[in-house]
């Protein structure tokens, strides 16, 4: 009998420790300067809202703020799909005054990302939209989050929140140059971009919701490494599909930068490239 009691005690200790640790980690996340902690912490008010996947990190906030004199907030994240981006953007529009401008990189409609979605379990108790999305798409993960408080923090999003506890993430950008050997092999690489009707619908909803609040929405395709835009399949199809769904024009900068030194890899401009890209967007009045 004592062995059975031992297992009962084990269960009690595990559950209690899990909940306690969960509370401690949640307080760390809330205190973080990471973008989503700020979003749900009420300190993310901005004039320009930026949205994208890893390519959206090219919207280098310090430079935009320096050039425009406006406050920016970037919701972008590596591999962020448009359905999660929609939840975040609508949450932003619910909690803050409407920004003047919303800049979206449409390649965020490329593909869904369940692994990343599971990572947003860390913030799902603060967002009904994220919670519903995870519950619908990843019911096992959602149940895991109900069973274990620690499991809600078992992801990269939490690790980033922890690493930005006392440090802003506004200057998060790929800060390196593409290796020459890799740059020379551009013709051997392809990127199979997917045109995902479901994600385009999500983008349409974001544009409609922002437009209804008087936000000036601008859609862009950020630059690719010279010669790589041709290796990305369906890029023009995506552009046409987005324009048809949203009724907004897409500013295509996919071939706008020609200097290899502007890139960290085939998909991402580096700091120098990002600044050149921002200058181009300002010249075209995509950015104020």
């Amino acid at each position: 009998m004592k062995h059975i009691w031992w297992y009962v005690l084990l269960l009690a200790v595990v559950v209690a420790g899990d909940r306690l640790a969960g509370c401690a980690l949640k307080s760390q996340v809330s205190a973080s300067a990471f973008r989503y902690s700020r979003l749900y912490g009420g300190v993310a008010e901005a004039d320009i809202l930026l949205l994208g996947n890893s390519r959206g990190l090219t919207f280098y906030q310090p430079y935009i703020e320096e050039k425009t004199g406006l406050k920016t907030f970037n919701l972008s994240y590596n591999g962020l799909p448009m359905d999660v981006a929609k939840a975040l953007t609508l949450d932003y529009l619910d909690h803050y005054p409407a920004p003047k401008r919303l800049l979206i990189d449409i390649t965020t409609c490329d593909r869904t990302n369940d692994e990343l979605l599971a990572g947003f379990l860390t913030y799902s108790d603060q967002s009904f939209r994220l919670d519903t999305l995870i519950r619908g798409r990843l019911p096992r993960v959602w149940r895991g989050g109900q069973v274990s408080a620690l499991f809600r923090f078992n992801n990269e999003i939490f690790q980033r929140a922890l690493s930005h506890r006392r440090r802003s993430d506004a200057d998060w950008l790929l800060d390196r140059s593409i290796p020459p050997q890799l740059a020379a092999s551009v013709a051997q690489h392809n990127y199979p971009l997917e045109v995902h009707p479901y994600l385009i619908e999500q983008l349409r909803d974001v544009c409609a919701a922002a437009g209804a609040k008087g936000v000036d929405v601008r859609l862009v395709i950020s630059p690719y490494f010279p010669g790589f835009a041709e290796r990305v399949s369906h890029l023009d199809d995506l552009k046409k599909a987005v324009e048809a769904a949203t009724g907004l024009p897409v500013s295509d900068y996919s071939r706008a930068l020609s200097d290899p030194a502007d890139f960290g890899d085939f998909m991402h401009p580096n700091k120098k490239g990002s600044q050149a890209y921002i200058d181009l967007m300002r010249k075209d009045a995509v950015l104020p």
Binding site: L10, V14, A21, L150, F151, F153, N154
Partner: peptide, 12 residues
């Protein structure tokens, strides 16, 4: 056992 279970939940 508790530590192993917590580690599994947090890192697994």
């Amino acid at each position: 056992f508790s530590v192993l279970l917590w580690v599994l939940a947090f890192f697994g």
